[in-house]
Design a protein around this nucleic acid. Structure first.
Lengths: 137, 137
DNA sequence: CTTGACCCTCAAGTTAACTTATACCTTAGG
DNA sequence: CCTAAGGTATAAGTTAACTTGAGGGTCAAG
């Protein structure tokens, strides 16, 4: 497979694919006589794994360290599992934070909407901030 | 208040505070005769609002456009509410994505742990990816 | 008067993950 | 042969949000 083909099939740009190869995330890329890249079919799967991992919040460096070593044969399952579990925990942590943040934003919105008549803007800011601080506990 | 004091009270670095001022996020900063910054007490609240908004996922540019104009007197409530509501939606969208991603990761973990004996690493990769793809729907 | 803690400005460096630009080669078609 | 489409390498640019560094004033104490 040449680069345009795999780019279309994967939905990624050619530059991005070349970038991944240069970074060592894409092993097994051969060269044709003319210097053109020749991608094995597995490369498509690999790209799928990479973009999926990215969406899961892995950095390229993390992904690189978890991918089957370009030289070795496959994954080191223990490490992979550890890393996956750690990432699940990261996500859960982020979920908790988002939940708090969302609640705070709703508190602020409510605080603005229900501003007591006669209370100045500045005073209301104080009031709303106090509500938010109270919520943090 | 001089910069070190507000830095300590806010927990931010001096460079970060100077940066915010330079970006126009921190209005009302005066100068003493010697050129030193003199922060009004409200600046502390402003910093609190800024970092809070950042944690809520606002970029500095967004925050800047929502803060009380340095020249004007206060907030433009309608815009502020609109933006806050939009950000709540962003958060909810992110929450949905995280939920899916977490489920996918768990699927993968399970797929690895329950690999049928006798199935090769490569074949199992295929199997697991298929499971993940199925989950995406 | 000197030392050390603070303060200033302005420019440049940092990180991640790419994209864009430059310049040149290859291949297929009319 | 010429051209357009597609390929290559390498370097530099991009964005966000800061940090770091260079070079230099200010102030209180001893």
């Amino acid at each position: 497979m040449k680069i345009s083909e795999i780019a279309e099939k994967s939905g990624l740009t050619r530059s991005r694919i070349r970038f991944y190869e240069a970074e060592g995330l894409l092993g097994g890329v051969r060269r044709q006589g003319n210097g053109y890249r020749e991608f094995p079919p597995e490369a498509l799967q690999l790209l799928e794994i990479i973009t999926g991992a990215q969406q899961a919040g892995f950095t390229l460096d993390e992904i690189k360290s978890l991918l089957p070593a370009a030289d070795g044969k496959g994954w080191h399952h223990a490490e992979l599992l550890t890393s996956l579990r750690r990432k699940v925990e990261d996500i859960e942590e982020l979920q908790r934070r988002l939940k708090r943040t969302r609640a705070q934003l709703l508190t602020i919105i409510e605080g603005i909407e229900t501003r007591p008549a006669g209370l100045g803007c500045k005073a209301n800011t104080e009031r709303v901030l106090a509500q938010v601080r109270a919520r943090r506990s």
